[in-house]
Nucleic acid binder design. Structure first.
Lengths: 141, 141
DNA sequence: CTATCTGCAAATTCTTTGCAGGACT
DNA sequence: AGTCCTGCAAAGAATTTGCAGATAG
């Protein structure tokens, strides 16, 4: 939290009620992947008049500061999650049955990246998603 | 091509002029990743009155038959590429400088998948994207 | 004070859908 | 003939932007 505050200050970022609300929503949902719409509903419990534009602007800013991770799900929708240092590189498993998003840690990909390195690429980041069934749904089948 | 035709027939799929046009565009751009809009412009050279809706419907159908692969790029836009059997599992490298999309083959991910298997997941597919610089742009820096 | 932030509504961008007419087999 | 297909235009969904008023520092 101190780290987050420091990051915010760095970029002439005003800590308004609405931003506090969005930040609280994200902190209270550590580990979950929320859409902008979901953040809006939660944030309105704290800051009732907050609008969707403000939510988007805030999430965008927080993502650019790496306070949040932003990634695309369901092909056409971003979801945001609190960035936690321990899991800098993590991957998502999306359950095709129930929609559960779980996470896999592990940096299995360094090998592939150094291959690309040798080919002349400079890899900055990667994104990996798995599609399948979560343990609960897999059992039911 | 025979394989494609067979697939089409299987699903009471009519090979109209517009669909031939889209298919030709994709065949002529083997290895490239086209957006619906790009397919539209190319297809109009062959079938001048084709509309964007038809392009989407055709691409969707071809993707469902696994004649094409469909994947999300730039966060908000699908791109389509001809499916070639040899590279069933391949991954994308998106150059942050020039936008070039190149491909990596290799199924480095089985290891991670079997880990998940042991945890009770049933993994059906995965999608991996790398972000960085292609050899040409990396050199220029 | 004054630069930044907000809510609203309108605009954008990509994709999908409804419908009336047209075409393939 | 009858089902499937097409183009058009309108609808949808997610996100962004312009603007005039509000507010943090």
């Amino acid at each position: 939290m101190d780290v987050i505050n420091a990051k915010l200050r760095e970029s002439s970022y005003r800590l308004t009620g609405q931003r506090k609300a969005v930040l609280n929503v994200m902190l209270e949902n550590k580990g979950r992947h929320l859409s902008a719409e979901e953040v809006l509903w939660e944030a309105r419990k704290i800051s009732p008049n907050i609008g969707i534009a403000t939510v988007y602007r805030t999430l965008e800013k927080l993502a650019s500061l790496e306070v949040l991770y932003k990634s695309m799900f369901e092909g056409n929708k971003y979801r945001y999650e609190l960035a936690e240092d321990e899991k800098h590189h993590h991957h998502h498993v999306l359950c095709l049955a129930c929609g559960l998003i779980s996470e896999v840690s592990g940096d299995l990909l360094h090998e592939l990246e150094s291959d690309l390195d040798e080919q002349g690429y400079k890899i900055i980041d990667h994104e990996l998603k798995f599609y399948g069934y979560c343990p609960a749904c897999n059992k039911k089948k």
